[in-house]
């Protein structure tokens, strides 16, 4: 399943300073956003996981948008990822 994952607001600093990733997820299972978070941590995250994850969700201060909509309107970690979804992580912790 192909999706795009984007980082902004400083979250990209944790992911090799790259803002845009085209990701191909293995299709043998159902993908919730919560599962994706751990996949990102294991596969793309380069440093300091504690700045990205906390417990089973993102760290407070990181905003998530699924197809340009606030993930709080999409059931957050329980959201079931669909093919071609675009998921954006914006950090509010860097600067300000």
């Amino acid at each position: 399943m192909k999706i795009t994952v984007e980082f902004g607001g400083g979250a990209e600093l944790l992911f090799d300073n790259k803002k845009h990733y085209d990701v191909e997820l293995p299709e043998n299972t159902e993908w919730t956003l919560g599962r994706l978070l751990f996949w990102l941590k294991d596969n793309l995250l380069k440093e300091r996981p504690e700045l990205f994850l906390q417990d089973n969700s993102v760290r407070p201060g990181i905003l998530v948008l699924i197809n340009d909509t606030d993930w709080e309107l999409m059931d957050t970690v329980k959201y079931e990822i669909q093919p071609n979804d675009s998921i954006l992580f914006i950090s509010t912790l860097h600067g300000g």
Partner: peptide, 16 residues
């Protein structure tokens, strides 16, 4: 943050 996202603005970021 959402105001910036919806206006396509990307703030400068700093390593904290």
């Amino acid at each position: 943050a959402f105001y910036n996202i919806f206006n396509n603005l990307t703030p400068v970021t700093v390593r904290q």
